[in-house]
Amino acid sequence: MSNHHDELDEKTHPKGGFSRRGFFRGVGVTSGAIGSALITEDEAGAAQGAGAKAVGPGAVPVTLNINGREHKLNIEPRVTLLDACRNHLDITGAKRVCDRATCGACSMIINGKVVYSCTVLAVDAQGRQITTIEGFTSPSKPHPVSAAFVNNDAQQCGYCTPGFVTAAKAFLDRNPNPTEAQVMKGLGGNLCRCGTYMGVRKAVLEAAKAMKGGKNA
């Protein structure tokens, strides 16, 4: 029984540039930062066409298309999409909460469908269109779902919120005119421990109205 090895395994290396997260991590971790720094273009792309040739277990070049931008990384095949984004690319909107494909805080949209990014290998997400919450909403230009979450007090501590907003956007893209029952079912993959479900449901219904008759942001 060895269920507590995550910290040992997922050595989180500071990335090349300075960032608040990189700084915090740098304080605690004094590793050589070999495996995971951003790499040059020439080295990237090999893992994608790995085909029948096995790569790894050490770091391999991985190219991810996130929010319309290509990111080239050098990471081990075991690194999840969530950890690649959070620990290597500073894309931290999606949260790591249960890390077991249950709570939904890590929700991202891949090729139009919402997934648990904690349970997708980054190496397996290559060649696909990955959208994180940063890709469709921002404080200066909030997506109708984000705005509706604010209007309906649909968050409390906020940990689940990015995942909920992402799952709600993906849900509304597929179901533009949902009933409340459909909203409940459609967001069944996300948990809120504060219990803000009432507000979330209202927010999603309001966002559906706001998005009607026009392209959403």
Binding site: D9, A47, A50, G51, A52, K53, A54, V55, G56, P57, G58, V60, E76, P77, R78, L121, V123, D124
Partner: peptide, 8 residues
Amino acid sequence: MQAFEYAS
């Protein structure tokens, strides 16, 4: 998770 080789 333990490190592994990956093939597709």
